[in-house]
């Protein structure tokens, strides 16, 4: 038997997110919008909680914020690099398809990692092997395969594992 609180608010984090995004969407903090947002934040999780599959939660929020900032910085820097490569001479380009070994098998972590790889310009995650051990990544300009794989593992995967602690 679940407690009353967990039955009334099956997904507390989602409720907070819904309320905040409702307020941002309406661009106001007037009492009327807070009441309406709170109503939506209360009812929508009740209606959709049946579809919810448990996922590992973030354990260390400080690390998550640092991860987001680091990815943001990487996006800006790498974007400028890719932009220069696009307008520069194309014959120096070395596209490649590489396979990156994965240590994590969890759905959510894999999704976050694949999205991070796709967001940082120059790499697109193309396909995941059925046993979830290899991620196929297309690279716009491959300089050093070892270094790229090491960067993905050290810079992103390790931090993600620390963040979710699994």
């Amino acid at each position: 038997m679940k407690s009353l609180a967990s039955r009334l608010l099956p997904m507390p984090m989602h409720s907070v997110l819904l309320l905040v995004s409702w307020l941002i969407l309406n661009n106001s903090v007037s009492p009327g919008h807070i009441v309406l947002g709170a109503f939506l934040a209360f009812t929508i999780p009740l209606l959709v909680s049946g579809l919810h599959t448990p996922q590992p939660g973030i354990r260390r929020y400080g690390l998550a914020v640092r991860y987001a900032l680091m990815v943001m910085y990487d996006i800006v820097v790498a974007n400028i690099e890719v932009a220069l490569k696009i307008v520069g001479p194309l014959k120096n380009l070395q596209p490649a398809l590489i396979a990156v070994p994965m240590d994590i098998t969890n759905d959510l972590l894999l999704t976050v990692l694949a999205s991070t790889i796709s967001l940082t310009p120059g790499t697109v995650s193309a396909e995941l092997s059925e046993d979830r051990k290899w991620l196929y990544v297309h690279v716009l300009n491959l300089e050093d395969e070892e270094a790229l794989i090491r960067q993905i593992k050290q810079r992103y995967e390790k931090k993600l594992r620390e963040m979710f602690e699994c």
Binding site: A78, N79, A83, L93, P121, L140
Partner: peptide, 10 residues
């Protein structure tokens, strides 16, 4: 595959 890099990122 290379074209995919340009718009989705820039």
């Amino acid at each position: 595959y290379t074209r995919l890099h340009a718009p989705t990122k820039a």
